[in-house]
């Protein structure tokens, strides 16, 4: 087990170097100049431009710039934002809880609804529920996410007025961010209605973000279940006199979970990587929105550092998923 873990961690090294190179190159390939963007509409004089150009180190060869960045990363220094002058590291960790909170809620929603829905569809294959579910999954999967979000905002925030349009909590409430998770902080604050307000702010973004993973998980669960239900050991389970609930819910589902875990893992990686559209539409102050804003500002350190951290996160999540296989599939478990 330890050896497996070490060998997996070893494969992180080339990936890590690759991501460093790509994240460094990516933002520099884009047209646009951070100095001019920073100067804004007032513009900047030729001398001042040269001064800043040298100050940011853009005059040095690109390879030297990369080497500076790379050695910095190895020492845990991701650089400082051009715009806010704060370390990238600090910015990331002040915003990450918001993304994490939203992602966790979304993935829980997707798992808790998607897996039972997939199981029920598989067991009732070809019947009404199956058809209805699979068509809505297809719609959910293919619908543009920004449009779906706007639709929900129009109905639930605009027409019905049930939920707020944006942000994480009403401006009425103010308390220290002890954990960075609004749901927990609002409870800890003890202020009346704070938690409810946080929930009401979270609910629409979570639904929007959960839509695609929900559709994917439901479809994957259904097809895995259909495959497993034809297996010999399911006949054995039924021949033992087990109730259908137990045959489907325990004997079949446990086996069907193996491919579903992969999909869940991929979705988690995708969500953590910043639900860019969702966060932008709902003005959710998370990683996705931060990255988009930084790209507009050509804030090189933030974009390359942020990309790197997100890539690392995805890698770690994938590793965790692989480890989770072992828990569910005894054949993979090491002797």
């Amino acid at each position: 087990m330890l050896r497996y873990l070490l060998s997996r961690l070893l494969t992180f090294v080339p990936t890590f170097i690759g991501v460093c190179i790509i994240s460094f190159a990516f933002i520099r390939v884009l047209p646009g100049d951070p100095i001019i963007v920073m100067a804004g509409e007032r513009g900047v004089s030729e001398e001042r431009y040269q001064e800043l150009y040298e100050q940011f180190g853009f005059d040095r060869p690109i390879v030297v710039q990369f080497w500076d960045y790379f050695t910095g990363v190895l020492q845990g220094d991701l650089g400082t934002s051009y715009v806010t002058k704060r370390p990238v590291w600090d910015e990331f960790f002040s915003l990450f809880p918001a993304t994490l909170e939203l992602s966790i809620c979304a993935i829980l929603l997707a798992i808790l609804l998607g897996i039972p829905a997939g199981v029920i569809a598989a067991v009732n294959r070809g019947k009404f529920f199956d058809r209805a579910l699979m068509s809505s999954a297809l719609v959910g999967y293919s619908m543009p996410i920004f449009w779906w979000a706007l639709l929900l905002i129009i109905v639930f925030s605009g027409n019905l007025g049930w939920t707020p349009v944006s942000g994480r909590i009403d401006l009425l409430y103010f308390f220290d961010a002890k954990t960075g998770f609004m749901l927990i902080d609002s409870l800890l604050s003890g202020q009346d209605g704070a938690f409810q307000s946080a929930v009401r702010h979270l609910i629409l973004p979570a639904i929007v973000l959960a839509t695609i993973p929900l559709a994917v998980i439901a479809r994957q669960t259904r097809s895995a279940m259909l495959e497993v239900l034809g297996e010999d050991y399911i006949r054995t389970a039924r021949a033992k006199g087990l109730a259908p609930m137990r045959v489907n819910g325990v004997h079949a589902l446990r086996n069907a979970m193996i491919p579903v875990i992969t999909v869940v893992g991929l979705s988690v990686g995708m969500l953590l990587a910043g639900a860019i559209l969702t966060e932008t539409i709902f003005s959710w102050p998370g990683i996705g929105k931060w990255m988009v804003d930084s790209i507009y500002r050509r804030d090189y350190p933030v974009v390359q550092g942020g990309l790197l951290l997100v890539a690392l996160l995805v890698m770690v999540v994938n590793l965790l998923v692989d480890l989770a296989y072992g828990l569910i599939n005894p054949k993979i478990r090491k002797r």
């Binding site: 297996e231 006949r235 006199g241 109730a243």
Partner: peptide
């Protein structure tokens, strides 16, 4: 179906052709 499940597996049981795939690999 419910009454039948009380009989099968208890008073009347069955074994199958492919023992390797007839046992659930996850348990």
């Amino acid at each position: 179906a419910k009454q039948r499940r009380k009989v099968i597996g208890r008073d009347m049981s069955m074994i199958f052709q492919e023992p390797m795939s007839s046992l659930n690999p996850c348990f």
